[in-house]
Design a protein around this nucleic acid. Structure first.
Length: 588
RNA sequence: GCCGAUGUAGCUCAGCCGGAAGAGCAGCGGUUUCGUAAACCGCAGGUCAAGGGUUCGAGUCCCUUCAUCGGCUCCA
């Protein structure tokens, strides 16, 4: 097999480097086991990945869970045999004959540049084309586990054969492996699709259609809190907030180029008065029409037009995933039209805004990527350079670490993508800041400069949360459904101990509601224990237990969802406690 | 779209070799009025995803479609 390059950080970190070699070696041992059980199997590639390894095979029938058990058992035998990994270099001809029965290996050999030194690694009876590196012997694969199987195209190309991939992972100790499996289990417990149902936040329905979300009252409260905060901060940062329709005539999408280049992702047109209309897959053309609604002066720029714009895109059925990948979603979209000498400051402002917003939602770790001009591009190369420089400048000015994806920009402009890291360290793509040299040209955007010349403005497209649906999904998983007080759909539930306390419970709730809190009363004829359990399961931040003693004292016994019982507090103190909890949040 | 798995009550799931559709939770009715994570009794609830086929007989076997899940590819 082929090494696809050791990640640079792996070489620096001894543990990562060991894991990398161990997993790579485990992939060999797995292929060995598969060939013993399925001698007719054709092997493809089997690299280590960020947290494990896989190997792709072409086999007569897909692997079953029982197959995985047998393969894993055989792997353990090989590991126990502690067979050394032996590297050998060889020339192209002997490699070809060695792998004469392995067509994928032959293709790999054929595609390698002539000057490449071919090498193989052996352990026991098994030999694989491979650059290495590996551990010294199979016994050094300390803790290994096969996880699941999946289909995967040969070389990721859907016109090539579908292979069967087996995923597994390996660690330097059994403890580390178990910790990893525990992280996977924790991720499953946090799954926003499960929590979304349990906490009654949203659902998807067969009857409505795949990838289309309905937000329930509790999810709806949270969404409006997010939107309110978003609007407020955008107004304060000099954005104008607009609204645009969900459909537009074919001509608009013709001009924008979407019909030529994006049609596969658009919902089919509807015909009205012999005119074709399309559901919008993007908001840009509408914002551009706003820009074009008058002749713009340089004095008006920068013009920042923002919208929580709902778009519809046809996503292939196999890629839909809860809220993370849907067909109808709302982008927190904005388009900034500006002068050349405003570009750097505008980009910087977007970055600052991003970090402020993300931090409000508890995200503090980022992975930033700058993508530069690809081979095929539109627009003036000088404007490209200026734009790319301004992106870089904004990053450097803020001393931000960032990677560079050379040539990874869109055909219409360079961009910065920001991934946020959640509580489990998983990365989510949300924020994107992209220059666009295509649409201003297509729509003939201009402004009039000091000398009366009509000049094309710079256009920056940006979304910070990305889509409200995806961001909400990330938020659910980040907090595991235990939202901070300012976002919690129900901030406190009042729990009367017996029915005779219902009336007082309502008074408590009414007082807190007057103070602006979202409070419910659990007046079911159930025991207090049941009500507390329910509130815990709903991850309600505050439980206010009221019985005879509290009613007497105009108080409530405060329990927080971490299980702490704070005892009976006067209602005024309860309010203070909640207010203190809101300090430093957008609701403060 | 492709590979594989799955689809049974509102939810989570059992249902063996084809032979009378089940449980827990939720819901509803009643009893209970309780001090920090599940009171008790009862009732109701199903075109077994949809459509077709095989069979004396299909939740169970076969085909098609739809959806979901794990991936591939793509992406906010």
């Amino acid at each position: 097999m082929l090494d696809h390059g050791t990640p640079e950080h792996a070489a620096d970190d001894p543990i990562e480097s060991l894991r990398h070699r161990m997993r790579h070696s485990a992939a060999h041992v797995m292929a060995d086991a598969v060939l013993q059980l399925f001698p007719e199997a054709k092997v493809a590639i089997g690299p280590p990945t960020a947290d494990g390894f896989y190997y792709d095979f072409e086999v007569q029938r897909p692997f079953t869970p029982e197959d995985l058990e047998r393969i894993e058992a055989l792997m353990l035998e090989t590991i126990n045999a502690n067979a050394p990994f032996v590297r050998e270099e060889l020339n192209r001809d002997s490699a070809q004959s060695m792998f004469s029965s392995q067509p994928f290996k032959q293709e790999i050999i054929d595609d390698l540049p002539d000057e490449t030194t071919l090498s193989i690694y052996r352990h026991g009876e098994f030999t694989d084309l491979c650059q290495g590196p590996h551990v010294a012997s199979t016994g050094e694969i300390t803790a290994v586990k096969l996880l699941h199987t999946a289909g995967a195209y040969w070389r990721g190309d859907e016109t090539r054969p579908m292979l069967q991939r087996i995923y597994g992972t390996a660690f330097e100790s059994q403890d580390e492996l178990e910790a990893h499996l525990e992280r996977l289990a924790e991720a499953e417990r946090r799954d926003h699709r499960t929590l979304g149902r349990q906490l009654n936040l949203f659902t998807v329905h067969d009857e409505i259609g795949p990838g289309l979300i309905v937000w329930h009252p509790r999810g709806g409260v949270m969404r409006s809190l997010i939107e309110d905060y978003w609007r407020d901060i955008h107004y304060r940062r000099g954005y104008s907030i607009v609204y645009s329709p969900h459909i537009g005539r074919a001509r608009l999408w013709q001009t924008s180029g979407h019909l030529d280049f994006y049609r596969d992702s658009m919902y089919a047109p509807m015909e009205i008065d012999e005119q074709e209309y399309f559901l919008k897959p993007m908001n840009c053309p509408f914002h551009i029409q706003i820009y074009r609604s008058s002749l713009r002066s340089y004095r008006e720029l920068p013009l920042r037009i923002a919208e929580l714009g709902t778009v519809y895109r046809y996503e292939r059925s196999g890629v839909l995933h809860g809220l993370m990948r849907v067909r109808g979603f709302t982008q927190d979209d904005a388009h900034i039209f500006c002068l050349p000498d405003q570009v750097a400051a505008e980009v910087g402002d977007v970055l600052d805004l991003t970090f402020e917003i993300m931090s409000a939602f508890g995200f503090e770790d980022y992975d930033i990527m700058l993508s530069t001009r690809p081979d095929k591009y539109v627009g003036d190369p000088e404007m490209w350079d200026h734009a790319t420089e301004s992106l870089r400048e904004a990053l450097v000015e803020r001393s931000l670490d960032y990677g560079i994806d050379e040539g990874g920009g869109a055909f219409y402009g360079p961009k910065i993508d920001i991934k946020i890291k959640d509580a489990l360290g998983r990365e989510w793509q949300c924020t994107t800041v992209q220059f666009d040299f295509n649409l201003p040209e297509r729509f003939g955007l201009v402004y009039q400069d000091e000398e009366g010349n009509r000049v094309q403005p710079y256009m920056v497209h940006r979304a910070i949360l990305g889509s409200l649906e995806r961001f909400f999904g990330v938020l659910v998983e980040h907090y595991a459904g235990a939202f901070p007080l300012w976002l919690a759909p129900v901030q406190a539930v009042v729990i009367p101990i017996a029915d005779r306390h219902n009336e007082y419970a309502e008074q408590v709730a009414a007082q807190l509601r007057d103070a602006g809190f979202r409070v419910e009363v659990d007046d079911r004829s159930e025991r207090m224990n049941q009500k507390i359990r329910q509130a815990q399961l709903q991850k309600t931040p505050y439980m206010l237990v009221v019985g005879d003693r509290e009613a007497e004292a105009n108080a409530a016994a405060v329990r927080t969802r971490d299980g702490d019982n704070h005892g009976a507090l006067p209602l005024s103190d309860v309010q203070e406690m909640l207010k203190a909890d809101l300090a430093g949040t957008p609701a403060a």
